[in-house]
């Protein structure tokens, strides 16, 4: 059984904002972006962090940004001047874990959260078996960031 997803874009925004305010405020707040990640991105490669939610509703939350932005986020969270790929992967995983976990808490109770997965991917990858439901385009530290919520097609 798959229930429909009843989220507001504003909820996703609030959840993401809380994460940024708590750990990444040094570089200023998140803002709504007037353009898409594709239009604003300086590179053709992205870091995409995702976490799965299983339950009455089953799907995935993804967080995407350019590698340089991901590195800035990792450096800020870890308070380090230089970070390695493994740090970036871990930091982005924790960011999407927090966003996904808080989105899960807005869904009917009893859902479970998977462990985060972080990949580097070309722009605009979408699995054939997924449907995009929500998309929030943001900017932070002058660079684009995108949150998407996908459901797994049955």
């Amino acid at each position: 059984m798959t229930t429909t997803l009843d989220l507001q874009l504003e909820d996703i925004r609030v959840v993401t904002d809380d994460v940024w305010t708590s750990f990444l405020a040094t570089y200023g707040p998140l803002e709504w972006s007037p353009v898409t990640l594709e239009e604003a991105s300086p590179t053709d490669e992205l870091v995409q962090a995702s976490v799965a939610i299983h339950g009455d509703w089953t799907g995935t939350v993804t967080l995407e940004m350019a590698p340089a932005t991901a590195e800035t986020a990792a450096r800020t969270m870890l308070h380090l001047d230089a970070v390695e790929e493994v740090d970036v992967t871990d930091a982005l995983g924790e960011l999407v874990n927090m966003i996904g976990g808080n989105i899960k808490s807005l869904l009917p109770s009893g859902s479970t959260l998977g462990l985060p997965i972080v990949i580097r991917a070309p722009l605009c990858t979408a699995g054939a078996s997924t449907i995009e439901h929500y998309r929030v385009e943001l900017t932070w530290a002058g660079t684009p960031i995108r949150i998407r919520v996908w459901s797994t097609a049955r």
């Binding site: 874990n97 976990g101 808080n102 109770s109």
Partner: peptide, 22 residues
């Protein structure tokens, strides 16, 4: 990051003293 009411109750019942949501 587990932020649901029921989860917090579960953790406290299991013996956690405090609960901080990420």
């Amino acid at each position: 990051t587990e932020a649901e009411y029921d989860q917090i109750v579960r953790a406290l019942a299991a013996g956690a003293h405090e609960y901080l949501i990420k």
